[in-house]
């Protein structure tokens, strides 16, 4: 029944695709990716559940050997290092690298959990694998591994600074997580800008900037919401400056994604401040004012989006995929 069902519709697809062969590129890659995630998750749970049993040494050995095998395969197959974009993207070796890296994560996680290799320096336990990932990402030219490395670094700073805030109640330390997030974000932004400017792994720039942008914006917004009266203005101007900087970058890089982020975060900041002022003495009038603000501001933003071409002075600029 199904065979008949698709008979008609495919006739036309075949007509248009008669010249080109039917590609199952993305289907195969999706299967491969799911398989890798399943194996690393499965092994991670497997070793966790079998701790202190006879088999867990075997499982650990399997994980370690698997990781080493995958990484060794990549090392043998890899093209020599280039500062630009490597050859074929999303090849078999790329996926083996990902599997090797994920298994390595399970392996070190287990070592820390069972033998406390890094003691109570939990930040270090994240930072050392992250540094290794960073090396691998640059050596084998892999953006997915780079993102793992960046999240590892963010996590290690977060783990290292959060307890500080709990113990010290003065202003600076209360903001320690926010400030450290801003610092990490600034460092990542710098890395992203430099890889673009120096033309060293230019295609890594997006991953750095994307992490940096969300980290900084969310940190500053948290400061805005939690801060006292005068502090709010400080955070607001910081947010506004970052949104403006992001807008400039988006214009230069012709990235609609960064443009949307800049507008959304900027709008959130402005809206917070305006509603804060309007509802200081809540009344019916403030309801009117708030609704009028939403209508006018959204209308303005829509107008902005519709006239982007005029603003940016570009006619259908070819945008990067990100």
């Amino acid at each position: 029944m199904k065979a008949g069902a698709s008979a008609d519709s495919t006739a036309s697809t075949e007509a248009s695709a008669a010249t080109a062969p039917f590609s199952i590129y993305w289907e195969i890659r999706t299967l491969l990716y799911l398989g890798i995630v399943a194996v690393s998750t499965g092994l991670g749970i497997l070793i966790y559940k079998n701790i202190d049993t006879l088999g867990h040494q075997t499982i650990l050995a399997v994980i370690g050997l698997g990781s080493a095998g995958c990484l060794g395969y990549c090392a043998r197959r890899a093209a020599p290092f280039t500062a630009g974009k490597g050859g074929e993207e999303s090849s078999w070796a790329d996926y083996m690298l990902l599997l090797g890296v994920l298994l390595f994560g399970v392996f070190t996680g287990y070592l820390q959990f069972k033998y406390s290799v890094f003691g109570t320096h939990y930040g270090l336990a994240l930072a050392i694998p992250a540094s290794f990932y960073l090396f691998l990402a640059y050596r084998f030219d892999h953006r997915g591994v780079l993102q793992l490395a960046i999240s590892g670094f963010c996590g290690s700073v977060g783990v290292a600074t959060t307890p500080l805030a709990a113990f010290h109640e003065n202003m600076f330390n209360r903001h320690a997580p926010i400030l450290s997030a801003l610092a990490v974000g600034a460092a990542l932004a710098l890395a992203g800008i430099l890889s673009g400017r120096l033309d060293f792994k230019r295609h890594f720039s997006f991953a750095y900037l994307n992490f940096a942008l969300h980290l900084c914006m969310i940190a500053a917004y948290t400061g805005l919401v939690l801060g006292g009266a005068w502090e709010k203005w400080l955070w607001f101007f910081l947010l506004a400056a970052m949104a403006a900087g992001l807008w400039r970058h988006a214009k230069r890089a012709r990235s609609p994604y960064f443009l949307l982020c800049s507008v959304l975060y900027g709008y959130l900041a402005v809206t917070y401040v305006i509603l804060h002022l309007v509802f200081r003495h809540a009344s019916t009038a403030s309801m009117y004012a708030a609704l009028a603000y939403f209508i006018l501001s959204c209308g303005g933003t829509i107008h902005l989006f519709l006239n982007l071409k005029n603003l940016l002075g570009t006619e259908d600029a070819g945008l990067p995929e990100n």
């Binding site: 195969i28 299967l31 499965g42 559940k49 599997l99």
Partner: peptide
Amino acid sequence: IETGLTLLGLALIAIAWAALRLF
């Protein structure tokens, strides 16, 4: 479930590898 996940993952990787070789 964890054994199932691992075996399933290995099977998926094997299928993908075979499909890559075959096509």
